[in-house]
Every structure is written in structure tokens, then in C-alpha cells.
């Protein structure tokens, strides 16, 4: 909302998006000049060319992702900051500091300009917070009913940290697995917003950029960080299974060390969902050498969102390619991947 004040919606001839805004004609120019370029401006974008031309020296990482979240506004964020943070975080998980992003919109005819404006302002704020720039992009409009208000693709490029060696091949038995914070906030926020759930809460999404904290951890722990991954879709369980398969190793985790806030846990109980499979947007899992695990955790807990970080488990030679969890009551069970989206249970 603060950014809204900084860049208010100008007086325009239109208050909703129509097909003309994606035509490449005058309406497109109006939309871009009055909005996109103005809000997102920087030297490279200001050239308004078909692409951006720049120098970048060193080892580079690149990542792309498309954002289709519904609803587009939710507690703690919206599709705009999600689209910036998501790609910035994917690069961070490669050990790279995001530098430039591309930004493509697919807008649905009838989208309110006020909504589009709020998304644009959030994109700018997220870029500033993460220290990245939007340098080229695209806007298309589809007929009403053929989209869902707004879809966003971002593609990012970033410089890989000189000490980064993030690779499943570097994971070895004895490595510790560290989770950076409490689970399942983003997914539960979205679920509680969806129409027809009859369920309201004050839980907010954890969407945030992770590049600064990850890069500073790489400064200090370098090659002792063997792997990084953010548990977005599919949640922690899916990421741990991917790590176990990729590293051809087993994983042991302890349920009592996995932090879930009480309100989130209560919502999961009510909705019949397992928080291990619920999406997160501001969390990461690090697999680190056992020799640095305590120091890594200590540093992470210093970070403003790292208070609840914990060592949740370790890599083992036993049960290769499988994740086994010690339950709160001391039993052991396998944590498997799901074939699709988690579905609520009947009773």
C-alpha cells in the first residue's frame, strides 16, 4: 500500500484491461508508458527496445517460472511479488545472486486497472527488496474466460557465487539437513482464501526473497553447503524425496524438529492436509557438511526470518532413495511423494 502512494494510478481513458491493450497499438503504448515503464523504470528498461543489451562477467545461472496463483491477492503478498521472489529464489538455490529479470504478463480482458496497478507496484517493491531489475518484458491480453485475471512469467539471470558448489553429487552420508523456518504458511494462506472453503484465518504467506541470506551464508560456508532447494509446490516432503533420489542416498528426519506454527497446524488439521506437502514461498532446505551445521544454523537464526530454523535430519547410507521420519511419538514411517495435488479427506 505504501508503494501505491508512491506511484498512484494516473487518470486513464480506461479502468479495465481490454483486448486492445495486447494489440501492440496505441492502447498498448498507453498502458506501458503510463504504467509498466514508469513503475519499473531503470536504465536498461528505459531503452524500450525489443530486448536488453548488457555485459555480465563470470559464471551465470538462469531460471524461469510462471505464476498462475488464484486468488491473485492474499495475506502477505500478491502474484506480483510472488513472481519476483520465486525466480530470485530459484537462482539463489543455484548459489546465484539474481541480477536481471524478464517479465511477461498474460492479462485477462476485464482485469481492473487498480488491481494491475497494485501488482505492478508490488513487483517494483519486490525488485527493490531483492536488488534486481526488470530489463525486458511482454504484455498479452486474452479474451475474458480464457485466463484467470493475470498470469506472470519471469526469467532471471544471476551471477553464481565463486564459492558455490551446489550439486546433489556433493551430498554425502552424515550431512545435516537444515530447514530455514516454519512450514506450510503460503499454501494454507491460499487454501483459506479459495472460494467455498468457509474458513478464514489470519495466516499470511511467507513469500520473500532469499537471495541475500543465502549469498551471505555462501560467503561464510562456501563449499560446505552441498545443496539448496526451496520447498515450493509439493512442499518439504517432495523436496526431500527429490534430494534422496538425486543423491542416491537415504534421508532421516525428525518430526519434532520441523517447526509448524500453531495456527497453521490447526488449519491443516481442519482442512485434512499434511503440512509436509503444503507449498512454501520463503523457505529453503540446506544440506550442509556436518562440520559446519551448528555454525550454519547459528548464522541462519540471526536472520530476521530465521528464528525458527532447525536441523531437521541427516543424510544416511541406509534406505537409499527414501525419506524416513521419526514421528512425534517415536514411531518411524516413510515420507513418500504424492502423485498429484493433495486432496482434502472426507472425514
Amino acid at each position: 500500500m505504501l508503494m501505491m502512494l508512491a506511484c498512484p494510478l494516473p487518470k486513464l481513458d480506461f479502468d479495465t484491461i481490454n483486448l486492445g491493450h495486447g494489440s501492440g497499438g496505441t492502447l498498448t503504448s498507453q498502458l506501458l508508458d503510463a504504467g509498466v515503464f514508469k513503475i519499473l523504470e531503470n536504465d536498461l528498461l528505459n531503452k524500450k527496445h525489443d530486448g536488453a543489451i548488457f555485459n555480465i562477467n563470470g559464471k551465470v545461472a538462469m531460471s524461469t517460472d510462471t505464476y498462475v496463483v488464484s486468488p491473485i491477492f492474499f495475506e502477505g503478498g500478491n502474484i506480483g511479488d510472488l513472481a519476483v521472489n520465486g525466480t530470485v529464489n530459484d537462482l539463489a538455490m543455484c548459489g546465484a545472486a539474481a541480477k536481471y529479470l524478464t517479465l511477461s504478463f498474460v492479462l485477462e480482458e476485464g482485469l481492473k486497472m487498480t488491481e494491475f496497478w497494485e501488482v505492478l507496484n508490488s513487483i517494483r517493491a519486490a525488485c527493490d527488496a531483492a536488488g534486481v531489475q526488470i530489463i525486458t518484458g511482454d504484455t498479452k491480453v486474452v479474451e475474458k474466460g480464457k485466463g484467470d485475471k493475470i498470469f506472470i512469467n519471469t526469467t532471471g539471470i544471476g551471477l553464481v557465487h565463486p564459492e558455490a558448489a551446489i550439486d546433489t553429487d556433493h551430498i554425502k552420508p552424515g550431512d545435516k539437513i537444515i530447514l530455514s523456518g516454519p512450514l506450510a504458511r503460503h499454501g494454507i494462506t491460499i487454501m483459506s482464501h479459495r472460494q467455498g472453503l468457509g474458513f478464514e484465518s489470519t495466516i499470511s504467506s511467507d513469500t520473500r526473497a532469499l537471495n541475500k541470506v543465502v549469498l551471505s551464508l555462501l560467503d561464510e560456508f562456501g563449499k560446505n553447503i552441498h545443496f539448496l532447494r526451496d520447498p515450493t509446490r509439493g512442499g518439504l516432503a517432495t523436496v526431500l524425496n527429490e534430494i534422496a533420489i538425486g543423491a542416491r542416498a537415504g534421508i532421516d528426519i525428525s518430526q519434532k524438529n520441523i517447526c509448524i506454527e500453531e495456527d497453521v497446524s490447526g488449519a491443516c488439521e481442519m482442512l485434512g492436509l499434511d503440512p509436509l506437502y503444503v507449498a512454501n514461498e520463503g523457505l529453503f532446505v540446506a544440506v550442509v557438511d556436518a562440520s559446519v551445521a551448528e555454525a550454519f544454523l547459528y548464522r541462519l537464526q540471526d536472520w530476521e526470518h530465521g528464528e525458527m530454523a532447525a536441523i531437521i535430519g541427516e543424510i544416511t547410507n541406509d534406505h537409499p532413495r527414501q525419506v524416513v521420519m521419526r514421528s512425534l511419538i517415536g514411531g518411524r514411517r516413510v515420507v513418500n511423494m504424492l502423485p498429484g495435488e493433495q486432496l482434502p479427506r472426507i472425514c
Partner: peptide, 22 residues
């Protein structure tokens, strides 16, 4: 079904079926 016995075994118990852990 998430309440089905086969799914419960498949997701949570498959390895324990193959080898005893405790």
C-alpha cells in the same frame, strides 16, 4: 483414497514392509 489402507501402506509403510527398522 488418503484413507485407503493400500495408499497408507504405499506412502508411509513401504520401506518398513521391506526391512525392519526398529
Amino acid at each position: 483414497s488418503s484413507e485407503g489402507a493400500c495408499a497408507a501402506y504405499y506412502y508411509f509403510n513401504r520401506l518398513l514392509v521391506e526391512e525392519t527398522l526398529l
